[in-house]
Amino acid sequence: MSILLDEESRVVVQGLTGKEGSFHAEQCIAYGTRIVAGVTPGKGGTTHLDRPVFDTVHEAVAKEGANVSLLFVPASVAADAILEAHDAGVPLAIVITEGIPTLDMARVQAVYRETPGRRWVGPNCPGVISPGKAKAGIMPGFIHQPGSIGVISRSGTLTYEAVKQLTDLGLGQSTCIGIGGDPVIGTRFLDALRLFAEDSDTEAIVMIGEIGGEDEENAAAWIRENGFSKPVVGFIAGRTAPPGRRMGHAGAIISGGKGTAAAKMEAMRSAGIHVCDSPAEIGATMKRVLGR
């Protein structure tokens, strides 16, 4: 088993005919993902990468049964494209696009929050991969290996680093989710943890966070309060990052000392998460925790 994505998933690519969309969709197809259609307004009726292109997501759902949308839409119109996927009833939207205005994402979030059963991942993320089954994203497929470790990460290349370490040690992955590095994201650590909790084939989890926000703390608090039974290995990037470069003056009021790498690591440790000091130790720590 896996979460969010598997060999049965029928993926529509919004922005399939663009340069990025085209390049990465081809890689996803090569990995074995069932990409069933593309959507580019104005190009309906054509085909691209041997897939039908539609004007709207609604058509892709009606005619090809798409149930996952992978978005490579430019940042200026991305929020509208996500809302189109939502409106068409697509259960899962995976948003790769980087640089979407925060307030646009807040509006998207407000809509999704009120619709149970519909989810989005990202933006500004590498996507989702269930190794050996399907990949909907921009991550290099070959570093992954089917297995039982779930990976949740706010980063792109740092996730690849962790996955490579796991694979090199013979620890395959059930699903790897890049949740994205933006202030507003559709699926947070806690949401992903809940999904992995119910996945019988996921035995342990790697959680890669970074400075800013309180999502890691919230996930840690949930683990502590709910007695989450699967082992979790964690890493937080940014211990050496200078404070105040991104956070506004008044932002400190809300975070009240939270948001630093030290606070996150402390919160995670107190929840029993095996936190690595070094990013080079993620794989080895998991191996040790699992006693292999």
Binding site: S155, G156, T157, L158, G181, T240, A241, D277, P279
Partner: peptide, 24 residues
Amino acid sequence: LDGNVGCMVNGAGLAMATMDIIKL
């Protein structure tokens, strides 16, 4: 920053992690 090891990395998360491991 004020340190002595210049770093060049692809990806923000990996760049931060690289800074961290240099310090370690």
